Each structure stands twice: as structure tokens, then as C-alpha cells.
Amino acid sequence: MTKEFKITKEQAIEARKYMKATNVKRIYRRLEVIALRGEGKKNKEVVEITGFSNKYVPQIVSMFMKEGFDKLLKDGRVGGNSRKVSKEDEEKFFEQYKEKANKGQLITAREMRVDFHTF
């Protein structure tokens, strides 16, 4: 049987604040686990609310207890999807495709992906 970690109400409040500040779904959902547990929910209830597996919820809680919010706030993904681009650069990148689209030219996702990595 796994050890039940105690998450405080203060930690739950802090998790909710981080949830409001993030726009990364993976991070949001991990923080939600901590918030729910700090609000008195048991793992079984958290599984039902979040849709996570009954093995993953305790892993998130354990990770939080060992490493705190810093670990939960890291996206952890690598590759093209985790690249951070400023709003201005994003608009500049997509401008070339808007022009092509307005001319009726087809644009493939593959073309955009290749161009993005060289951008």
C-alpha cells in the first residue's frame, strides 16, 4: 500500500494560484491534483475528477512532496512543441502563410514544421 502524503490547505491555495497563472494544460492538471488533495480529496476522488490513472495521482503527489512546485511547473517536454516564441515572432512567422493562403496556395503542415525549425 502506498503512503498517503498530507498536503496542506495553504499548499492547495498556492496550487490554485499557479493554475490560474499557467496556460499549459499538463502543468494545470498536475497542479489540480495537488489542489484537490490539499482540499481534502482522497486519491480515488482525484482520479475521478481529473481522469488520471490511480497510479499516476500518487506519483504526482510524491513528486510534489519530494521536489515541491518547481518540479510540477516544468513542462518536461522536449522538441518543437516546447519552443517558446514571442508573440511578435509568431505573427512574423505566420505572416508568410497568410500571404500564400490569400493567393489560394495550399500550405502543408510539413512545410510549416520545416520552416518553423529554420525560423
Rank of each mutant, 00 (worst) to 15 (best):
M1G: 15
T2R: 15
K3C: 08
K3M: 13
E4R: 12
F5M: 03
K6S: 07
K6I: 11
T8K: 11
E10W: 03
Q11V: 07
Q11W: 08
A15M: 03
Y18N: 03
M19I: 00
T22I: 01
N23D: 01
N23Q: 02
V24M: 04
R26P: 00
R26C: 07
Y28N: 07
R29W: 13
V33K: 09
I34R: 06
A35R: 05
R37G: 01
E39D: 14
G40M: 02
K41V: 01
K42W: 03
K42F: 06
K42D: 04
K44G: 01
E45C: 07
V46C: 08
V57I: 14
P58F: 07
I60C: 10
V61S: 01
M63T: 10
M63A: 13
F64N: 14
K66W: 07
F69H: 01
F69I: 00
D70Y: 10
L72D: 07
K74F: 03
G76C: 08
R77Q: 13
G79L: 12
G79K: 10
G80K: 13
N81G: 15
S82W: 08
R83W: 09
K84M: 14
K84V: 15
E90G: 12
K92V: 05
F93K: 06
F93I: 04
Y97P: 02
K98A: 09
E99P: 00
E99S: 05
K100H: 05
A101L: 12
N102F: 08
N102C: 04
K103R: 13
L106E: 08
T108N: 03
T108M: 06
E111C: 05
M112K: 09
V114P: 01
V114I: 14
H117V: 11
